[in-house]
Design a protein around this nucleic acid. Structure first.
Length: 576
DNA sequence: GCCGTTTTCGGCCCGACTGTTTTCAGTCG
C-alpha cells in the first residue's frame, strides 16, 4: 500500500509534467517536481498534517500546500483536473519513451495528432514522423527503439542482481591497463532496494581502452551512446550501464557526483553556490578565480564544503547534510558490528542445509551467537511437530560452543494467524531461547484486521521479533495494508524487536519504515532469514537497509553482547 | 512556484551526448 505521501508526490509530478506538456513555465514545473520529491520523502505522514504543517515541507509554498490540502479534503485537485482535460492521457506516456521529452511529444501531437504510444508507432511505420523539425532519420530510429524498450519492460532491477553485474564490470574494467581506479557508484552504491541503472566510474589518462572493454562485454545488447568521457549501453537483461571516465585527480569529486542521489547533489551544489563555489564532477572550484579547491577524494571534497564524509547509504537528502552540519550524523551500523543472526532455517523445515552445516558457516562469519528458528506447526506444509522441535533443541544444546565457541540459540519462527494468535501454548513457547513471529497467510485482510493481528502478536510475551512485517516481495507481492504507526508504537511499548529482513527480494522493513519505527523507540534485528548457507551472506543487504534507515549499533539487538541480548529477550511482561 | 547571512525580485544544478543545427535545442541523469 503506497503511502499517502507517495500518492500525493505522484500527483504533483504529474502536474509538473502537464505544465511542460501545455507549454507552461519550465521553472514552475521544476518547482512542482521538487515539491513532489520532497513530499514523497517527507518522514511525517501527510494525513497527520494541517495546511500549516504541509507548508513547512521544504519546497512546498502556499500554492502547492493549498493543492495538497485540497486533495486531502476532497480527494481532487481542480487545477490538476483542468490540465488533464487539456492534454490527452497518452501524451505523458509518450514522454516515458527514451529520447522523447515534452517538446517532442507536443510537436508530435500538434503536427500529427499523435496522443498515444501505439499511434506513434503506427505513424513511424507509415513514415509520417521523419522530416518534422529536429526529427531526422536517426532520431526516428531512436524513438522506434525507445518504444521497444518501454514496452518490453521497464521494471527496476533488484539490488542483488545489479550488484552482481556491477561487481563483475568493475573487476573487468579495473583490470584494463591504464585504469588507475574503478568502482560502481549511483543507486547501487547507495544500496537502494531496486536500481534503474548501473553507474560505473573509472579514472585513466586515456579512456579509450576502458570504453572498449565495456563495449566488448558479452551482456551488452546495444549501445546508447559513446564518447570520450561517457559510454552508455543496455544489457540483454534491459539494464542500462553508464561508464564515466574522469582524470585520476578528480576521482573524489566524480564519485560524489555519480553516487548521488540527485537531491543530495543538488543540496551540496546549493551549499557550494552560497560559498561562491561551484561543484561538478571535476571538483570544487572558486567561481571568481576558477581555482580548484578539492577533487581528489570524497573526504577532501566534503571537507572543503564544511562537511564530514557522509556514508553513501545516507546520501538521499533525508536530512543527512543538516545532521552532518550539526555534528549529528549517525554512526551507522556496519556488517562487522553484527554478532549473530536471529532468524535462520534448516532442512528440518524448508531450509536446504543441515543444522550442522548452517552452524559451521555461521561460525565462519565470525558470529558469537546464532539462532536456528525453523517453522512452527501451523504452517502446515512444513510438517513440524512438537517431537521434531524438541529433538532439534536437544541437538542444538549439544552443539552449543562446538563451533569456535559460538553460542547456539534455539528458537522458532511462529505463524501469526488472522487473529494475531501464534502456534503452541505459553508453556511450550517459554522453553525457546527466542521466538520470531511472522505473517505467512491472510495477506488480504483489511487494514483494521491486519493492524489488530500484528499488535496482538507484539503483545504476546513470548514473541521477541516480528519477522518480515509487511510481507512484501519486491518482485511479486505488494505489502499488506496495515497502520504501521500503530504497530510500531506497540512494538516500542512491548519491547518487541522488528526485523530488517535481509533477503534481497524482501528488505522488510524497508528504509523509510525503519526511520518511522525508530521514532517509536523500536529496536531492530537484522536477520538473513537464510534457508541455505549462501543466504547467510545476505546480511549485507540488511545492514545497508538499516543504514538507509539511519540505524546505529545501539538500535540493533544482534550487535549486542549475548548477556544484553538475553535480557532483552525476556520481555517486560515477563519480568517481576 | 519557491526562496532569501547578496535578495520580496530575479534567479532557479550542471554538464554530456546526439542529431541536426553551421551554433544549438532537446533529452538525460
Amino acid at each position: 500500500m503506497a503511502r499517502l505521501n507517495d500518492e500525493v508526490g505522484a500527483l504533483l509530478r504529474e502536474y509538473a509534467d502537464l505544465i511542460l506538456l501545455t507549454g507552461g513555465n519550465a521553472f514552475r514545473a521544476r518547482s512542482y517536481e521538487k515539491a513532489a520529491r520532497s513530499v514523497g520523502g517527507y518522514p511525517e505522514d501527510l494525513a497527520r498534517l494541517d495546511e500549516d504543517g504541509i507548508r513547512q515541507i521544504p519546497g512546498v509554498g502556499d500554492s502547492t500546500a493549498a493543492k495538497i490540502a485540497e486533495y486531502l479534503t476532497t480527494h481532487r485537485i481542480l487545477a490538476l483536473d483542468a490540465l488533464r482535460a487539456k492534454v490527452p492521457a497518452g501524451l505523458r506516456e509518450i514522454t516515458a519513451i527514451p529520447t522523447v521529452g515534452p517538446k517532442t511529444a507536443v510537436q508530435l501531437y500538434r503536427q500529427l495528432g499523435i496522443s498515444s504510444v501505439d499511434e506513434l508507432r503506427a505513424a513511424i511505420d507509415a513514415d509520417k514522423v521523419k522530416g518534422l523539425p529536429g526529427l531526422g532519420k536517426r532520431a526516428v530510429e531512436n524513438i522506434r527503439h525507445g518504444i521497444e524498450q518501454v514496452s518490453r519492460a521497464g521494471e527496476r532491477t533488484l539490488l542483488s542482481t545489479a550488484l552482481d553485474l556491477a561487481e563483475e564490470l568493475v573487476a573487468a574494467i579495473g583490470a584494463v591497463p591504464g585504469c588507475s581506479r574503478c568502482a560502481y557508484a549511483g543507486s547501487v552504491r547507495r544500496m537502494r532496494e531496486t536500481v534503474g541503472d548501473i553507474d560505473v566510474l573509472a579514472t585513466a589518462k586515456d579512456s579509450g581502452p576502458l570504453m572498449a572493454a565495456l563495449l566488448d562485454r558479452p551482456e551488452v545488447a546495444d549501445v546508447i551512446g559513446s564518447g570520450p568521457t561517457k559510454t552508455s549501453v543496455r544489457t540483454d537483461q534491459g539494464l542500462q550501464v553508464d561508464l564515466r571516465v574522469v582524470p585520476p585527480a578528480d576521482w573524489g569529486a566524480a564519485l560524489i557526483y555519480f553516487t548521488g542521489s540527485r537531491a543530495h547533489n543538488i543540496k551540496l551544489r546549493g551549499r557550494a553556490v552560497k560559498a561562491g563555489l561551484k561543484l561538478s564532477e571535476y571538483g570544487l572550484f572558486e567561481v571568481e578565480s576558477g581555482k580548484k579547491l578539492a577533487s581528489r577524494t570524497e573526504k577532501e571534497v566534503y571537507a572543503a564544503l564544511g562537511l564530514p564524509l557522509i556514508p553513501p547509504t545516507l546520501r538521499e537528502d533525508r536530512g543527512e547534510i543538516e545532521a552532518a552540519l550539526a555534528g549529528e550524523l549517525p554512526e551507522v551500523v556496519r556488517l562487522k558490528d553484527l554478532r549473530g543472526d536471529l532468524h535462520t532455517h534448516t532442512n528440518l523445515t524448508d531450509g536446504l542445509a543441515s543444522l550442522e552445516a548452517m552452524l559451521e558457516a555461521a561460525a565462519g562469519l565470525g558470529y558469537q551467537y546464532y539462532a536456528v528458528t525453523d517453522h512452527a506447526p501451523n504452517l502446515a506444509m512444513q510438517r513440524m511437530t512438537d517431537d521434531k522441535m524438541l529433538a532439534q533443541r536437544e541437538r542444538a544444546r549439544a552443539l552449543d560452543r562446538s563451533y569456535g565457541g559460538m553460542r547456539v540459540l534455539h528458537g522458532t519462527e511462529l505463524n501469526i494467524d488472522a487473529d494475531g494468535g501464534v502456534d503452541w501454548p505459553a508453556e511450550f513457547l517459554a522453553e525457546f531461547d527466542l521466538c520470531v513471529a511472522s505473517i505467512h497467510s491472510s495477506f488480504t485482510l483489511d487494514r483494521a484486521a491486519q493492524t489488530r493481528r500484528l499488535i496482538r502478536a507484539c503483545e504476546n510475551p513470548y514473541v521477541n521479533v516480528i519477522g518480515h512485517l509487511t510481507t512484501r516481495l519486491l518482485d511479486r507481492r505488494q505489502p499488506i495494508d496495515v497502520d504501521l504507526d500503530a504497530v510500531f508504537a506497540a512494538a516500542g511499548r512491548t519491547g518487541t524487536a522488528l526485523e530488517v529482513n535481509a533477503s534481497p527480494n524482501r528488505l522488510d522493513l524497508n528504509d523509510e519504515q525503519i526511520l518511522a519505527a525508530r521514532r517509536h523507540g523500536v529496536r531492530f534485528a537484522i536477520d538473513s532469514d537464510a534457508h541455505s548457507v549462501p543466504q547467510l551472506a545476505n546480511q549485507r543487504f540488511g545492514v545497508a537497509t538499516a543504514q538507509r534507515g539511519w540505524l546505529g549499533p545501539e538500535d540493533v539487538i544482534n550487535t549486542w553482547s549475548l548477556t544484553r541480548l538475553r535480557r532483552f529477550l525476556r520481555k517486560p511482561a515477563l519480568r517481576g
